[in-house]
Design a protein around this nucleic acid. Structure first.
Lengths: 145, 145
DNA sequence: CTCAGTGCAAAGGATTTGCATGCCG
DNA sequence: CGGCATGCAAATCCTTTGCACTGAG
């Protein structure tokens, strides 16, 4: 995908005083290959060489450096994806049946409106908005009762 | 607020084969009094009579019956609020500094647009949308760095 | 050498559950 | 009585952490 995805990741880690090691590169690669947020078990299944504790630790580092985002659903596992500015802005379809999370492209026209309406309401109360998240909760094709 | 909040809650529980006990009523009352989603510790602080395990168990029951919604943030605790159709539709301001969650009223005009744009995209992939969630992530007044 | 990164194993902590008891219907 | 609800305590299980070791600079 991004030819300089790894260069960007390395740079952000360097700014945070961290190295871009093979484990971290492997995690970024796995997240880049996936087209939806992955849980730790899913990540480990794709990169078996990485022990669990290293995965948790490195994902925490990558999150602090702004390379990955952690998202928490009602699912039992946290999910990880590449940071928004390294991918396309998108939203999530969260299946309340099986916990699956799929990506859905964002409509720039709507984005604009959300941004405006919502930021205005928030700043009125002294809140500084950094990002918005739009998630659709429902049933995926295989879980429709 | 809702004069028949408790009646509705009782009815929904009954449909699920459950009773509306005093513990459950106390939880619903506490959530109704609060003007933002509460964690379990916060709930217990307001209704000290309820033991932790009962709180968890009853909130799970209330969630299944559609009386409360559970929301998971990056915070360490899950948060609970009354189900959307028992309150006003609203969104959340989530502070990435302290984990606080505040409610913000929804703009019906924007709601409409989100609903349309997003549901169309989702149904295209066989996903049946039940609800949408719009969360603003940022810094609350006391956490702005 | 030095110090961040690694990996194993053990700890932490929110949430869940087993079991005996209480209570509504 | 019958079965849900309760509460205590103990178990679960995702996630974090201590510690000794390895490797890059």
């Amino acid at each position: 995908m991004s030819p300089d995805l790894h260069a960007t990741a390395a740079a952000r880690l360097r700014d945070d005083g961290q190295r871009y090691t093979s484990n971290r590169r492997a995690l970024v690669e796995a997240l880049d290959e996936a087209e939806h947020p992955l849980t730790i078990p899913e990540l480990l299944a794709r990169r078996t060489a990485i022990p669990q504790s290293s995965a948790y630790r490195n994902l925490a580092v990558l999150e602090r450096a702004g390379v990955v985002d952690r998202l928490v659903t009602t699912d039992e596992f946290a999910r990880f994806e590449l940071a928004e500015d390294l991918t396309e802005h998108h939203h999530h379809l969260i299946c309340s049946g099986c916990g699956a999370v799929a990506d859905v492209a964002a409509d720039p026209r709507i984005e604009e409106l959300i941004e405006q309406a919502v930021t205005k309401a928030a700043t009125a109360s002294g809140f500084r908005v950094d990002a918005h998240r739009v998630d659709l909760v429902g049933r995926c094709a295989t879980c429709v009762a």
